[in-house]
């Protein structure tokens, strides 16, 4: 029977705190950038210009059809070679995570917008709203409701995806856990704590999401 011993782990608990904080920062940063990229890509795909649609589509497929781990390694090691510049691990990590999640967000946004009945756009047009007004006041509020569940799912995944930044030595939770392990020789305890911390970060978020979703269903 394994003898669990958390003493050494708790001695280095500040390392976990750092890991949690860095994980949070990369998650929040890449979600915010991902939303911007996703919105731009979504509207590019809905555009009437074929070349915009083509660019958006190519980006989406490139990032959705390759593993995130490969993307991170490629951005950190291969991209600097090709461009002849140095890219910090922070930059490579944040950029890759943002573009990765943005490719999924863009499809969620697009689906949410397309799912709004076309009669809504016509009704908005019929009272004289411009395309932008109709999008802002009529289509988007309904689209957000459509897209919220998938958006939250992908965002939860995104927090967990930050653990892959471990391979380029970014001090997020998984990387910090490996640091704790090498200092304490207590991997089972360290990774158990890591799992609990990931859970503790995500569980309140899923509850909050449920709450918002219920509130948005008021009009049903």
């Amino acid at each position: 029977m394994y003898n669990w011993d958390f003493y050494a782990i708790f001695q280095s608990f500040d390392l976990f705190i750092t890991g949690v904080w860095v994980t949070f920062l990369y998650t929040a940063g890449s979600i915010i950038l991902g939303i911007l990229v996703g919105l731009a890509t979504c509207f590019a795909r809905l555009s009437r210009f074929w070349w915009l649609r083509l660019i958006a589509r190519s980006y989406q497929e490139l990032f959705r059809c390759t593993p995130l781990l490969v993307q991170i390694l490629w951005a950190y090691y291969a991209l600097p070679m090709i461009l002849g510049i140095t890219i910090s691990n922070t930059m490579a990590g944040l950029l890759t995570l943002s573009l990765y999640v943005g490719s999924f967000y863009s499809e969620i946004f697009r689906g949410g917008i397309l799912a709004v009945d076309k009669g809504q756009r016509e009704a908005a047009a019929a009272i004289g709203m411009s395309g932008v007004q109709s999008m802002r006041y009529i289509i988007m509020p309904q689209a957000v409701k459509n897209m919220l569940p998938s958006f939250i799912n992908v965002s939860i995944m995104q927090l967990k995806n930050t653990s892959l930044l471990y391979v380029i030595s970014i001090a997020e939770l998984t990387y910090m856990t490996s640091v704790v392990t090498s200092e304490t020789y207590r991997p089972l305890e360290a990774y158990s704590i890591a799992a609990i911390l990931y859970f503790a970060m995500l569980f309140p978020l899923t509850q909050l999401a449920d709450h918002f979703e219920r509130r948005m269903r008021r009009s049903d």
């Binding site: 009945d117 009704a123 019929a126 009272i127 004289g128 009529i138 309904q142 009009s219 049903d220």
Partner: peptide, 20 residues
């Protein structure tokens, strides 16, 4: 069309009320 639609109202078969 902006000004036209301000002055010409339309009512649809399927109402098209804004559900939100």
């Amino acid at each position: 069309t902006g000004e036209l639609r301000r002055k010409v109202g339309m009512i649809f078969q399927h109402f098209n009320l804004f559900p939100h």
